[in-house]
């Protein structure tokens, strides 16, 4: 494609877009909505995943050894052999005691405590948080283990939330994607209709399909790109506002929101990619029927 044509295609694409200002506005608006919903759900999912990772990192299940069990250390290999167990660490009564003292330096009570009132225990980390219940049961069943402490409810709640969010997110994105392509396609169909005589003449004199198509492709590209840009700015604002809300709220203080500056690259990239895909896809579907023979 020569430079000369490039300028022509861009010019035609822009003037096409303005010739149906309202429809173009609507098409861009729908694209913005699509990208915003897509982006918001994804960002929520990313943050939930981050929380889940934190939870996983901190989540040790504690398996307490029976009081009168002779050789607690012998249990180590049995526990390690259980599926989904990532690591097993033995903690003696003495060590457990020291930890308490470290953790609560102000509580006089622990300092004078006899370690013998505590039990020997194993700290067990699981590989997959989703299967923590089964793992807990298997650990419980080992001879010599008195009981197991695991925060499975918290983990379960997060996993359900994440799974529901993923399904809703994928379904919504798919629907909005199609709607956006459809609206952009219809907008461009209006311009192709306006220009049907010009298209007919171009075909008659032997213009290639590519030449005829480019201005409309640019029109779609431009709408998709504009939509992506607006959506990005709005997403950014929205994210900062929500992050601000979370960090100042008492109830959610503990949730650590990933700062936007760590996310903006992938967000910008995927918005631009999706926007351009929607725009160009819409324009190609609109122009198809004019290019047959």
């Amino acid at each position: 494609m020569s430079k000369h044509n490039f300028g022509y295609f861009i010019h035609e694409g822009v003037s096409n877009m303005f010739s149906h200002g309202f429809m173009s506005f609507a098409a861009i608006g729908i694209t913005v909505a699509c990208l915003l919903i897509m982006g918001t759900f994804t960002l929520v999912a990313v943050n939930a995943n981050g929380l889940l990772k934190d939870l996983e990192r901190e989540n040790e299940m504690l398996a307490f050894v029976e009081e009168d069990f002779a050789e607690p250390k012998n249990l180590q290999s049995k526990l390690a052999a259980i599926p989904n167990v990532a690591s097993v660490t033995f903690i003696s009564r003495q060590q457990a005691m020291e930890r308490f003292v470290e953790q609560y330096p102000d509580e006089e009570m622990f300092r004078d405590l006899d370690p013998n009132i505590l039990r020997d225990r194993f700290s067990i980390k699981v590989a997959d948080l989703e299967r923590i219940s089964q793992t807990k049961a298997a650990v419980d069943a080992v001879d010599g283990i008195a009981y197991v402490n695991a925060s499975e409810e918290i983990a379960g709640g997060f996993i359900t939330l994440r799974n529901v969010a993923t399904v809703v997110c994928v379904a919504l994105i798919a629907i909005l994607f199609l709607v956006s392509v459809f609206i952009i396609s219809n907008t461009i169909r209006l311009t192709t209709f306006d220009r049907r005589e010009e298209i007919a003449i171009m075909r008659m004199v032997g213009a290639t399909n590519g030449f005829i198509r480019w201005p409309f492709v640019y029109e779609g590209f431009l709408m998709g790109f504009l939509g992506a840009s607006v959506a990005f700015l709005m997403e950014w604002g929205l994210y900062e506002a929500v992050a601000q809300g979370v960090s100042t709220s008492d109830a959610m203080q503990l949730i650590e929101v990933i700062p936007f500056k760590e996310l903006w690259g992938p967000v910008a990239g995927s918005f631009a990619g999706a926007g351009i895909f929607i725009g160009v896809g819409g324009s190609l579907s609109a122009i198809r029927k004019y290019l047959q023979v």
């Binding site: 020569s2 010009e198 171009m202 004199v205 032997g206 213009a207 005829i212």
Partner: peptide, 8 residues
């Protein structure tokens, strides 16, 4: 000019 440009 339009049909000339159309063929390059």
């Amino acid at each position: 000019a339009f049909v000339m440009r159309a063929v390059g």
